[in-house]
Simulated scan of single mutants.
Amino acid sequence: MAKFLIHGKYTQAGIQGAVKEGFTAREAYVRTLMESVGGKVEAFYFAYGQEDVIVLIDADASAAAAISLAVNQSGSVELSTTPLLTAAEMDEARAKMPEYRAPGA
């Protein structure tokens, strides 16, 4: 499985729902939702500022995409998902780097 960092921003309706439901309950729901697609929440934080929620998950790419699709289509939260790579994975990528010609070179 891979690691993904999810940033979430509530819409007005989303934050109203979270306030009504309670934040502990919301976190529990997200953990259950992630498990339903075969992933795991490793860390879950509420924040204020540019993001309202920051979640670190361990999942395969299709599970991460499924969560993103389900949440974003709800209209209550806008998610941004960032794949995270280890140094070893970056070395694997480095070993596969093809020759690249820049535009106009």
Rank of each mutant, 00 (worst) to 15 (best):
T86Y: 05
A95D: 00
S68I: 06
T82S: 12
E51A: 09
A47M: 10
S62M: 05
V71W: 12
P98Y: 10
Y100Q: 04
A87R: 14
V55I: 10
Y29S: 15
N72K: 08
V30D: 04
E99T: 07
M34H: 00
E27H: 11
N72L: 12
E51M: 12
Y100T: 03
Y48L: 13
L33P: 03
A93V: 15
E92D: 10
I54M: 02
D52Q: 01
S80T: 13
A93F: 12
E35K: 11
F46G: 03
G38L: 09
K40F: 06
T82N: 09
D91E: 09
G75F: 01
A28T: 08
A47D: 12
G49W: 02
T81G: 03
A95C: 00
D91T: 03
L79E: 08
S76G: 13
V30P: 04
V71Y: 09
D58Q: 15
L33D: 13
D91H: 03
A93Y: 11
G49Q: 01
Q50V: 15
A47F: 08
E78K: 08
T82M: 04
R31I: 10
V55D: 04
L85H: 12
N72T: 11
A93M: 13
I57Y: 02
A66T: 10
S68L: 03
S80R: 12
E89M: 13
R101C: 03
N72G: 08
Y48N: 08
V53W: 01
L79Q: 12
G49C: 01
R94Q: 02
A66Y: 01
S80W: 04
V30W: 07
F46Q: 01
M34W: 02
L85P: 02
V30L: 08
S62G: 00
V30R: 07
M90C: 03
A64H: 13
M90Y: 09
G38Q: 11
M34C: 01
M97Q: 14
T32W: 00
E99M: 02
Q50S: 13
Y29L: 14
A87Q: 11
A28E: 08
S76A: 12
P98S: 02
L85D: 04
S80V: 13
V55Y: 02
V77K: 08
A88E: 15
G39T: 14
S62T: 05
D60F: 09
S36P: 11
D60M: 07
V77C: 09
E89Q: 14
M97T: 12
